[in-house]
Design a protein around this nucleic acid. Structure first.
Ligand SMILES: [Mn+2]
Ligand SMILES: [Mn+2]
Ligand SMILES: [Zn+2]
Ligand SMILES: [Zn+2]
Lengths: 136, 136
DNA sequence: ATTCTTCCTTAGAATGATTCTAAACTGTTG
DNA sequence: CAACAGTTTAGAATCATTCTAAGGAAGAAT
């Protein structure tokens, strides 16, 4: 299939990011195939496999910039590594501790009731629900 | 106040852990003053401040052993560091991203409804709710 | 198109939390 | 008091992530 770089170039510009060769390539890898949970190392390998030369430093820089721009979201479930999530809609996660797998749970499916009023001077930024799984 | 080491010696024995000088001292620091969220480095400093000589390696070993024994629980909210929680009852957390503060939310207060059936071969181990806060 | 300015990329070093190693030490049991 | 298994620890090693500083590329100006 033809590489529709124009789509990503545009998306990056709208997010206030220069559409550099690296950013466009990474955007393509990240957003070109549905919702995904990716680690920096994982994306680095994917890039290499698809013939794109990008340093690991740039992978980290880019993922953080995308996150700041709202194109990506980070998910903290493990401490050992950071996952980046291409699904930026309202949703939660299943996390399988055994194999490190992350799966989405639609935000509309889960209801969290009874969250207390935040302490003085603070406001709720986001409510994360992590359903931790174990092999049966 | 008198150091009631006997209480902790006993608790450790019941958990199948030898009550060594270090473990008893750390148990005392951890469990002697209500519910707390502590990092390894934090506990290390506390130990030093209270005149107890313990290596950082032992702090890590001990915290993990306590966790495996069910005396402690780990909380992953930040990726940069692991928090250990002396509150092992059913509860959730407020996490203030600005200053790294963790606060308990009673488990009975929050209700999570609509958690989908776990994928085949997996069972729910625990459901964590993290209410992320930002300065208003 | 060339120049200019600003932003971006990157190799490699640095960081920092956590884990590992292997040797010395201690609790427990007989 | 042995004697063994379980513990502690200094210091090295890991490993994900961040930092630095120098060269490269994108956009605006000329
Ligand atoms: Mn929801
Ligand atoms: Mn509950
Ligand atoms: Zn997700
Ligand atoms: Zn807690």
């Amino acid at each position: 299939m033809a590489p529709k770089t124009a789509v990503y170039t545009d998306r990056l510009r709208k997010a206030g990011l220069r559409p550099t060769r690296q950013r466009v390539a990474l955007a393509q890898l990240l957003f070109g195939r549905g919702d995904r949970h990716v680690t920096a190392e994982g994306l680095h390998e994917e890039a290499a496999a698809s013939g794109v030369t990008v340093s690991l430093a740039t992978i980290y820089n880019t993922m953080h910039q995308f996150t700041r721009a709202g194109l990506l979201r980070d998910v903290t479930v493990d401490g050992a590594r950071t996952y980046f999530d291409t699904n930026i809609g309202d949703h939660h996660h299943f996390y399988c501790e055994d194999d490190g797998t992350l799966m989405d749970i639609d935000g509309a499916a889960i209801a969290v009731a009874g969250v207390p009023t935040p302490p003085h001077g603070a406001k709720v930024d986001r409510v994360d629900v992590i359903v931790r799984l174990k092999r049966r």
